[in-house]
Design a protein around this nucleic acid. Structure first.
Length: 1007
RNA sequence: GCUCGGAUGGUGGAAUUGGUAGACACGUUGGACUUAAAAUCCAAUGGACAGUAAUGUCCGUGCGGGUUCAAGUCCCGCUCCGAGUACCA
């Protein structure tokens, strides 16, 4: 058959189609092959060295993936594939952080069970991930919402409950050890992380305690414990939020207001690990900014505790200070309004004022207090404290600049040494004694630690460093204080009033929490009618009818059977989102184990994550909590290392490039006030109009007559001022309607389901085109700038997507996505394909005959190997892609078709573009997957040069180049250059002052 | 306020230890092929000035100084943008 319009026979057309780079077929074929052959299944025992590459697992949201999500996965996949080529046994797993709020809110709205929507979302995610060709070992998939997984999250919770932190051993120890010691000698020698209010008791007292009392005492030591905590309560979400779930005083999710509220909550004693979390940072290769934010979050400050006696009371005020050396500069004290001593020490005359101040501050929301840092307020209690060294009377004030939640909620105010104290003193006209030698404090406080201290008894003449030591020594000698390290880090609230989270393995007996024996785990989430809190304000699990624990059958039973003797109510809270993600990296090592979280053999073999890639937004959440749990599990001997990720990389966010059309709102209305026509103008025209708007006559030239008449008549009708006749409203246009040249598909826009209002709008074209405006913003559905990887894969293929995401720029940097550039990398892949299809009618052909040593292709190949090796080591994937392009451009120019070059080239490129590499590798006659082929070895001998093109510069400015042998000595180079005709021309008879010759680099002639 | 990043053509971005600034792409312009479009291929492309031209000169990495034979890179002082954090005693 002959097709006249195509000028070819069907037979040749067939050949052409078959030999073309048909990425859709190739990619589907190899994805199927990898899946069927389990190409990327990692073995837990191997002679090869291990390498563990981990991604932060995704939350499977209903919206699916956009092109920003896979960025980190592509980078880690390249690394994982590269390591396989280099002979490592690579563990590269993936899973889902599948508990969470969005599924629950969707359930509240639609009544659909979160388990169902989560499952559906996971299916979409899996399809999207598969089509990008990741080398994940899916046999190890984890889902945090799977009972077989959260069984172990519950197990870890029980371990935490049964442990305390021994500061002497500097590790977590079984709570049973504590009980034993209490029974022998009480707690006076115990050095453990505990609540501040633990009282000292004897063994006799301990034995006399009731069960309940003992329980309460132990709770003060446990690593997870119930307590009345002031929490961030979000009424709209009906739940408690952690500090890192609040952004700018409102909830991160939804942006709802948050209030402080006291509630009985589970807490995690992460503060016990504060110092180790800090120290551990030194041992891991994580980005410095991330380490910095963890360091700041932990907020260690070294100082001293000092006790001040209150005159006329038995009470003492304890303060924490980082500058005990300034104690002789104390002229007042300030307590937080919430401080418990306030009501005890306030004098009758001041009582009224104090109470109204406390009331006023309590009313002010946290947000107001934050926004209003400048206003100074406070009130005098009427009471005085006694200075511990000179016995002076110190007035005691309250003020809301002192926070109840930090330190002791009280400060010793040294106005000459602290700006806040200074401002407070000035405002209330309190004395500001100067304790610094030759320092002027008439304008502001002196916070410089190098200032010499004066008027301070035995520390006068010292600087801070020395004075602090001396003061602490004196305080300890007098028994009124001691050196102390304080942390900003708070214990982490661990209860959430949500449905879609891990249930606690806890029931309540006489109001005291009891752990369910680990052998009955998992405690499965109960079914509920509604996912909302109950009418009496209980969490959603309060809706469950089958939610009680029978201690005889060890089963969950009907609530009605609760009898307080054998059957008890179960915990109604669930665990927070970070519970499941705090240990999942260990589970991947042995994901299907039913006996333990992972077998000892697997944990010992894989040890830790060699490379972890994910976003920096988890710096003070997941990445801190998971380090905490890892340290705990290490203390318990469950895992072999106490830092789980040796190296971490933060991938930058991919931003969207939004497109805008401009609605032209001039007084375009008829008599009834109805808009006659909606008109859109392009970006350039809008700018022109704005420039010319001073005079309508000027604009005559920039419109066709029809639009000018319309404009003119409507202006006349409305008597609009000619200076205000135009106004433009930018409207987001869907980016999929805009091409690479910023040209809008106008018909597409009008027919877009979201633009119903603009169906009959008119678009003023310029040169037949409508050009949109562009702006870079966060990628989001509401901005119509989301680009779906599915479309890219369909149109250009997964290999193109992978390469392009890497080509966009450095991995760690935020960068805008612009689909326009994708044709560049796609064209590159076509060129690569062509290189292997130099036969007749573009059929596959490689020349297997050996090539000469001096062949330029070898140089190209080895130059590229070297670059790719270096780039992967530096996580500089963008420059690898350029070097591939350079290589292919060079080899194409050389018309290279040699197997000796093309075979290693396919391996070289396979981590980046695995599908095309497999196909070419297969066509080259290899039976096995390219993914296990040996990576080409760089050989320096192919890059040895005999000459160098020297830039010859005069006074630092490059003027011309000269090709010179590399064998030449400095002197010989100088002679060659000076003898050169062009040098003489440049010098124009002058004698140079100096000639700098750097062999192999540059020649610079000065003078 | 504090801490940490960053600033290079029209755009995304290259540039080992200071040593030819703008690799590689996109976009734009011109050309080839085509009835046309797409695809493909070729050429030009930081700015200014001079020249018919080959070419040459000057200016150029946010701003102002400095070190150096030589600075995008090092030092000092700013400006702007982004992220985190915030009365932490």
């Amino acid at each position: 058959m002959y097709i006249p319009s195509l000028n070819v026979t069907l037979q040749t057309l067939n050949i052409i189609l078959r030999m073309r780079y048909n990425f859709n077929d190739i990619e589907a074929k190899w994805q199927k092959y990898w899946s069927e052959n389990q190409t990327f299944k990692a073995e837990n025992l191997s002679d090869k060295p291990k390498f563990y590459v981990l991604d932060m697992f995704p939350y499977p949201s209903g919206a699916g993936l956009h092109v920003g999500h896979p960025l980190g996965y592509i980078a880690s996949d390249i690394y994982a594939r590269y390591k396989r080529h280099k002979g490592f046994n690579v563990l590269h797993p993936q899973g889902y952080d599948s508990f969470g709020l969005p599924a629950e809110q969707y359930a509240i709205q639609t009544g659909q069970h979160p388990a169902k929507t989560t499952k559906e979302n996971i299916k979409t995610y899996r399809r999207q991930l598969d089509q990008i060709g990741f080398s994940f070992d899916w046999s190890r998939e984890v889902r945090t919402s799977d009972p077989n997984y959260y069984k172990w999250t519950q197990w870890i919770f029980i371990q935490l409950f049964d442990s305390y932190y021994c500061k002497d051993a500097n590790q977590a120890r079984p709570i049973s050890e504590l009980v034993e010691v209490f029974g022998i000698e009480g707690n006076f020698r115990i050095n453990a992380a505990a609540d501040d209010d633990v009282e000292i008791f004897t063994a006799e007292a301990w034995k006399d305690y009731s069960d309940k009392q003992q329980h309460e005492v132990l709770a003060k030591y446990r690593l997870t414990f119930l307590s009345d905590t002031e929490v961030n309560w979000c009424p709209q979400l009906g739940t408690v939020l952690a500090n890192d779930e609040i952004v700018n005083g409102v909830s991160e999710r939804g942006g709802y207001p948050v209030v402080r509220k006291k509630m009985k909550q589970w807490s995690m004693r992460i503060t016990a690990y504060a110092q180790r979390l800090l120290d551990g940072l030194e041992t891991i290769d994580w980005p410095q900014p991330l380490k910095d934010s963890q360091t700041n979050w932990i907020g260690r400050s070294q100082g001293a505790m000092v006790s001040f006696n209150v005159n006329g009371h038995d009470e003492k005020i304890d303060v924490f200070t980082t500058r005990p050396d300034t104690i002789f500069g104390v002229s007042f004290m300030t307590l937080a309004p919430e401080h418990e001593l306030v009501s005890k020490i306030v004098t009758d005359t001041q009582k009224e004022k104090i109470n109204s101040y406390i009331e006023a501050t309590a009313k002010r929301s946290e947000r107001e207090r934050m926004a209003d840092v400048k206003t100074i307020s406070g009130e005098f209690t009427g009471a005085y404290a006694k200075h511990p060294f000179n016995g002076k009377k110190i007035p005691i004030w309250i003020g809301d600049y002192v926070l109840a939640s930090y330190g002791t909620g009280a400060v010793m105010a040294v106005p000459c040494g602290d700006q806040r104290d200074y401002d407070f003193a000035k405002h209330f006209d309190i004395e500001i004694p100067n304790i610094f030698q030759d320092i002027d404090i008439s304008e502001h406080a002196c916070e410089d630690k190098s200032a010499v201290i004066a008027n301070s008894d035995f520390i006068s003449g010292m600087t801070a460093k020395k004075a602090i030591k001396r003061i602490i020594f004196e305080l300890e000698a007098k028994g009124i204080g001691s050196g102390k390290i304080n942390y900003r880090l708070r214990d982490a609230v661990f209860s959430r009033q949500r449905y879609w989270g891990e249930p606690f393995p806890v029931y309540y007996k006489d109001g005291m929490p009891q752990m369910i024996d680990a052998k009955y785990l998992p405690i499965r989430l109960p079914e509920v009618e509604k996912y909302l809190p109950t009418e009496d304000g209980k969490p959603p699990l309060g809706n469950a009818t089958n939610w009680a624990w029978c201690t005889e059958t060890n089963q969950i039973v009907d609530n009605n059977r609760v009898n307080g003797t054998t059957i008890f109510p179960l915990e109604l809270n669930t665990m927070p989102g970070w519970a499941g993600s705090s240990w999942y990296f260990n589970r991947y090592m042995d994901a299907n184990n039913t006996e333990v979280i992972a077998s000892k053999e697997a944990l010992d073999y894989w040890q830790d994550v060699d490379l972890y890639i994910g976003g920096s937004e988890h710096a003070t959440g997941h990445l801190l909590y998971s380090r905490f749990w890892q340290k705990f599990l290490f203390d318990k001997g469950v895992v072999p290392v106490d830092e789980y990720a040796k190296k971490l990389i933060n991938q930058g966010m991919i931003l969207g490039t939004s497109a805008f059309v401009y609605r032209w709102d001039f007084k375009n209305v008829d008599e009834s006030g109805k808009a006659k026509k909606i008109i859109f103008v392009g970006k350039d025209l809008m700018e022109k109009i704005i420039k010319e708007r001073s005079s309508i006559e000027n604009s005559k030239g920039i419109f066709d007559s029809e639009h000018f008449d319309l404009l003119n008549s409507s202006l006349e009708k409305n008597n609009a001022s000619k200076n205000k006749w135009s106004q433009f409203v930018p409207i987001h246009a869907d980016v999929s309607l805009v091409n690479a040249s910023n040209e809008l598909d106008v018909e597409g826009f009008k027919n877009h389901p979201l633009n119903k209002d603009y169906k009959d709008a008119e678009f003023i074209l310029e040169n037949g085109k409508y050009i949109v405006g562009r702006e870079v913003e966060k990628m989001s559905k509401s901005k119509y700038n989301v680009v779906n990887p599915d479309d890219i894969c369909a149109d250009y293929g997964a290999d193109t997507l992978r390469l392009y995401e890497m080509f966009l720029g450095p991995l760690e940097q935020a960068k805008p996505w612009n689909t326009a550039g994708i044709t560049g990398v796609h064209g590159f892949l076509k060129k690569l394909w062509k290189l292997y299809h130099s036969g007749e009618n573009d059929t596959f052909y490689v020349d297997s005959s050996p090539l000469g040593k001096s062949d330029g292709a070898l140089k190209t190949l080895h130059k590229t190997i070297k670059k790719v090796d270096e780039d992967i080591a530096n996580f500089s994937f963008n420059t690898s892609v350029s070097s591939f392009m350079i290589a292919v451009n060079e080899l194409t120019a050389q018309k290279c078709n040699k197997r000796e070059i093309l075979e290693p080239l396919a391996v070289l490129i396979s981590p980046y573009a695995p599908h095309i590499a497999e196909e070419l590798w297969n066509k080259l006659g290899n039976e096995e997957s390219v993914s296990i082929a040996k990576f080409p070895i760089f050989e320096a001998k192919y890059l040895v040069e005999s000459t160098k093109t020297y830039p010859i510069s005069f006074n630092g400015k490059m003027r011309f180049i000269m090709e010179l042998s590399l064998d030449l000595s400095k002197e010989e180079i100088e002679k060659e250059v000076m003898d050169n005709e062009r040098t003489k021309q440049q010098l124009a008879g002058r004698t140079p002052k100096k000639v700098i010759v750097v062999p192999g680099k540059i020649v610079n002639i000065v003078g």
